[in-house]
Design a protein around this nucleic acid. Structure first.
Lengths: 123, 123
DNA sequence: TTATCGTATGAATAAATGTTCATGTGTTAA
DNA sequence: TTAACACATGAACATTTATTCATACGATAA
């Protein structure tokens, strides 16, 4: 095996700051803005109330008061969280008469929830 | 189509709190503890520094000072975030002499990052 | 118009969280 | 033993954030 590109052995034995690995990893790192956006996406997903909202919308398009009933919490709190989810392009909304119906915006979101559940169920 | 189990039309036209849909969704909702854990998982993933750490570990097993160098930040801050990732079972660590090498613990994590990137790149 | 219903939103409060500073622990080398 | 290095961690501070309260907006019905 090529000694310069090898990474798993000989790391940080004498000099901790191993220049080869550090340089190659640094070069392979994604764009900072995209990492920021990725962190923002996960941050929005990382709330109990919002996870519950998404799990409900996973089953059916729902209006705010239905969500409020299902979650058993304040309508204002639900609306605030829906705003966060809307701003993050995780859910979309459409008006129907006096109501506003919410749904998952993107198929990626359902996939993230599914894989996330797989992870926590294995722990 | 059966009118009772239908959900997309006739929702919340007169009575907002539509009992059928609300009941079926409520019944299909996952366990509260699992939703809490899922939210916790996403919350840990939802930080810029931790996303950068995971992207680095995605490429190679690394010790703390390498990570510190790659991220260009305080060693203490990196260690604090590694602790959070360790507690969440997202990374694992092993000692090698004076160093501690960190790596991604679970293949689900890499998948979450990959799908998350797909999502943000489409926006 | 007026009243009511469904929803949105600003302000305020309390709680959670990321970073820095200082220090402690454990391992290696002298 | 002593010194140096890699890493961990508690405390403090500043910032973010989720919920509640009150209120405003928009659509429908009377």
């Amino acid at each position: 095996m090529a000694p310069m590109t090898e990474k798993d052995d000989g790391l940080c034995q004498q000099t901790c700051d191993h220049p080869d690995v550090v340089a190659s990893v640094r070069q392979a790192m994604p764009d900072e803005n995209q990492q920021q956006e990725l962190a923002q996406l996960f941050k929005v997903l990382g709330d109990h109330t919002r996870v519950r909202i998404l799990n409900a919308l996973y089953r059916s398009e729902l209006c705010v008061c239905d969500l409020t009933s299902i979650l058993g919490m304040n309508q204002s709190a639900v609306s605030h969280q829906l705003r966060v989810l809307r701003d993050a392009k995780i859910v979309r909304s459409r008006k129907q008469g006096k109501n506003v119906l919410y749904a998952l915006d993107d198929s990626h979101i359902a996939e993230l929830i599914r894989i996330g559940f797989e992870h926590v169920q294995e722990q």
